[in-house]
Design a protein around this nucleic acid. Sequence first.
DNA 1: GCCTACGAGCTCTACATGTC
DNA 2: GACATGTAGAGCTCGTAGGC
Length: 651
Amino acid sequence: MSEALDDQWVVRGDHDEYATILFNEVMPDGYALNHPRHTLLLKTTQSLIVASREGPFAFTQSPKVLARVARSIIGFGAWCNMENIERFENVTPDDIARFVSLAATGYERTMQTVRRIQDATDALRSAVGVPVPLALALQHAGIPSNLRSKIPRALEAYYHMNYPLALETVSARTETKQTLTKGTLYQKFFPLDMLWQCRKSISSALVFEPFPAGVWSVAESLGKDNGHTKTMPVNVCFHILAAAVNWVTLGNALLRLMHETSRDPSKAEEACLQFSKRHANELCGVSLSTRKLGSPYIVHPKTACITYLPTAVYIIIAAFTARRDIEISKLSAGSVTGNSESGWWLKSYIAKTLRRDDFTPCPEIVKAAVCLMEKIGREVRQEHAISLLFVVPGDANNCSYRRCAIDINLFARLVQTPKVMIEEILTDWKFSPHQFRRAFAVLFVWRFEYANIGALSYQLRHFNIDMTLNYVRDAELSSLIGEEYHKLTLEKMRSYANGPEKPCGIFGNVLKKFIQRFRNTISMTDEAGLERKLVEFVEQRKLRLRATPWGYCGASGTPSNLRRAACQSVINPSRGITLDGVPDSTGSDEYLCARCHFHVTDSTREDHWVAKQKSMEQAARNAYTSELLRRAQMERSRVIRIFIQKNFNKE
DNA sequence: GCCTACGAGCTCTACATGTC
DNA sequence: GACATGTAGAGCTCGTAGGC
């Protein structure tokens, strides 16, 4: 911890982390916290920060957490000051009850900002006239000016008193303040408990235990449940991923353009024009220019390279490795190792669970993205002997390097990510880094159909698999996956009805007959009629085709389907049911599906079947294969061979 | 259930950059 | 050179993921 300054402490932690705690906040009486009249509160706050970090009541080393403790104590001190309570010793249980119930409704009501700003405006009117400057009114009311976004009602009152005609324009700012979440309240109330626990080592303390039933029980009774990270709509997710991949693919060319244009400014504009024309598709609707032309979709090549390219790299890493924001931000240059044959591995710090570096498997695009970022910041890293990946050259006159400003929403707007309908308003989707971690889980679960949650749990580095299941049990996700299954089923049915693919397998033949029946009942030229019949068929039967490498499973979760599905036979030790109650395809294989009532396949899987049959035959012929296993493989190979002959007309 | 450690979103300030 | 605009980085309150 640094030495005490007049108005702030700089609290340092591990890994160069630090937090600044300001002690010059204006109190409701108009005097700053570090004014001599607030010495007691200041000393108590400082003592509690020390006690939180050292000694018997220490619970954290994190500078940010210590800063939060300070904020809570100062906040409570400000409320006491407003209530004319000079020492914490004078606080009564009733005061605590009043404070916590007010605190649950947010800053504005707790600190009675409406009344205070009205009083301040009244008092200042005679001295400065109307309108009273807002900054002056806030200062006189003892409300920190940076909290303006938290006091919409107080602002409305201020504007009403000073600019009556402008009221309509500001009334939109008012909204009912919802109760804060349990977690937030817990963090607000916990430091109050310390005013009792640490009573022997602080200047001013509570004389009773404020939360005998526990801090959490109070927070729980007053707060609302926490929310969760939203799931990106599929089209939005795929659009921004495609854009990020395109930008990363174009990255080296963009860097060359930036260097060319900076070397020869006279040709810069022409070079940008030509580049934009040549790479119109990859740039996803963005044009490059060295001049400011007013369009949000025109950017300077330097901005493209040091702002948008790092963001594209960030998105690629987040989406394809499921790493958290903090884990990506801390990546070092050279963090991807491996090769195209044995695979690529991203070395990153694993926050929350392991809390150490670990390797995560990743696709080649991640390796390309990291290499690109290494190139962007190479000179900076060499010059300053740092390893951080996400750094770019800083401002020439001020700092020589800086961390990349990753702004996913800015990038999304630039590449014109589709808008979404939220509460009947077409609006931009609001991205957050954690949504890509969630998107990874969505894509994994959808692609592998709930298979191997253990693998997903490892990728997310959860200690507890229940945490992973929280992702895949989520109602929003289930509905999303259900929707995708529905789309896939309809697409396959259309494809089977209109060609060129023909369904085969036992269930495939059933589908073929239904499609033929539809064709017989409608005019051959009535494609709309056929489409209608297909949709009705899929919806009425609740048909959901789920993909496997060798075809599709059409079994539902009804008792009769489960009884008849080949993979659910009691002699199959690998049988299993997915979380939505249908047969788990990971407990099945080609041999079982070849004779199953619910299996569909088509020519897109033909190569797979042929290769499988060959590999089984070779394995059976292997001299080292035991006799028992050889016989089993020969039998399996025979069944698959017959399936191929019957369905793909091959000998 | 309880708790920690972060992130999101907002505003403000200082400074850089662009435009006329 | 004056002014407008853009942007990084700070602080704040409130929200969220996830460990045990």
